[in-house]
Amino acid sequence: MVEEIRKVIQELLLKVSGLYCVLITDRDGVPVLKVLTDKAPELATRPAFLSTFGLAIDQGSKLGLGKAKTLICTYSQYQIVQMNKLPLVISFIASDTCNTGHILGLEKYIEPLLANLTVAVADTQ
């Protein structure tokens, strides 16, 4: 099952130029599935970085605009797009010039794959 999901995500990685990796983690940043290219920055794939998403969306929810769905952070060399699929979080790490809209468009391809993983994570919590 995981191998099938990995294969689909690997194909998506090739479709978006400048996309370095896709990580599916739980809310604490613990990786459930990692699909990396060799250009992926190692520091950004660690739980210490990925778990900040949970804190950020908690704060974002206080803006009164409803539940936060997506968080986009643009840095000088990279951009990180994180999607709220609690109990899972999907993180995309890409170059700063990568097409953000194209990354957001991947949501509809990845979402159907998450059902089984969500059950697995929900069972352990």
């Binding site: 978006v16 130029s17 097409n99 953000t100 809209g101 194209h102 957001l104 468009g105 509809k108």
Partner: peptide
């Protein structure tokens, strides 16, 4: 960045990213 600025009629906001990517290629 491929982010949607606006869409009207029979067009989806989800297409914005793809349209930008097609133009780049």
């Amino acid at each position: 960045q491929g982010l949607c600025l606006g869409a009207k009629g029979k067009a989806s906001t989800d297409s914005a990213g793809i349209i930008g990517a097609i133009t780049d290629q």
